[in-house]
């Protein structure tokens, strides 16, 4: 690791002010990607601004949706997750598990316990690793990414492999989304890294809008799968998925598997997301 200056920020505003004063500063969330990358000398920011003390960026808020005074049971709650909330905190939040178990399960299967206790949703979303789990969830759940200056729809936010709509000095403060009426996540872990080789997030909103987002398999990061969305919109069933041709075009081929294998995995994981 090359020499770097370390700062602690108490709030996102402090962090932005500190960042503005640096040559080539970077925001440090959980550091589960940035720190290893710095250790390998593949990144060398002049300054790190650590958000771990920014308590306001931490935690899960659930706004219950009420209909005629009675809580609606099948989704629709607005869930806001602070950017500095760790995967373990998301996975362990019992209220969240009641209203949106799919996101709890997804968080519980990110990395290993060490990663889950340091890694954060904000860090994951800012990094936009093409095999990370959260981008698929946020894309399928029509989430909003909140920054210190604006709100960005997930669809506009994720712009390909490691590419996002974030400006260099923009800081994610939270993500929010509605609990789906139906939702599931099927993940095929890479045997070595255990990142997704194909992760398929399926969600049906309370309004009936179906979205299917795929991570790990595409050659340019997370994307929505139109064929699967159309099939599941018509018929929310594994039989409907069986009838979809998943093309290998635009999928990744590497030492772990061909594009054809990943195309197969997308279909299988979509089905497993449903059950």
């Amino acid at each position: 690791m090359y020499e770097t200056n370390f700062h602690k920020a108490a709030t996102a505003q402090d962090a932005a002010a500190l960042l503005a004063k640096t040559d080539d500063g970077k925001i440090l969330a959980g550091g589960q990607t940035l720190i290893p990358t710095m250790k390998q000398r593949l990144a060398a920011p002049s300054d790190l601004i650590d958000l771990s003390q920014a308590v306001a960026l931490r935690g899960v808020t659930i706004t219950k949706r009420k209909k005629m005074g009675i809580m609606k049971a099948d989704g629709g709650e607005t869930i806001t997750i602070g950017a500095m909330t760790t995967h373990a905190e998301v996975a362990g939040n019992t209220e969240l598990a009641k209203v949106c178990p799919v996101i709890s399960g997804l968080a519980a299967n990110i990395g290993d316990p060490a990663v889950r206790h340091r890694g954060t949703i904000g860090g994951s979303v800012a990094n936009n690793d093409p095999a990370a789990d959260y981008p698929a969830a946020l894309m399928a759940l029509r989430a909003t990414i909140h920054t210190d200056s604006r709100e960005i729809k997930a669809e506009d936010y994720f712009q390909g492999m490691f590419a996002t709509a974030l400006a260099d000095d923009e800081i994610i403060t939270a993500v929010s989304f509605q609990a789906p009426a139906l939702g599931g996540y099927g993940k095929f872990p890479n045997p070595a890294s255990r990142y997704a080789m194909a992760g398929v997030f399926v969600a049906k909103s309370v309004e009936g809008d179906v979205r299917v987002a795929v991570t790990g398999a595409g050659d340019n990061g997370v994307y929505r799968h139109a064929g699967l969305e159309a099939a599941l919109s018509a018929d929310w069933s594994t039989a409907a998925i069986d009838a979809v041709e998943v093309s290998a075009d635009g999928l990744m081929s590497d030492l772990h598997g061909t594009a054809a294998y990943r195309a197969n995995l997308i279909k299988v994981m979509a089905k497993r997301a449903l059950v």
């Binding site: 045997p191 070595a192 890294s193 990142y195 590497d254 030492l255 772990h256």
Partner: peptide, 19 residues
């Protein structure tokens, strides 16, 4: 599995890729 590409670059050089 130790894997090289055609140019002799090792593709399985870390435990992210070497199982």
């Amino acid at each position: 599995n130790v894997v090289y590409d055609d140019a002799g670059q090792q593709l399985s050089a870390s435990y992210m890729d070497y199982t």
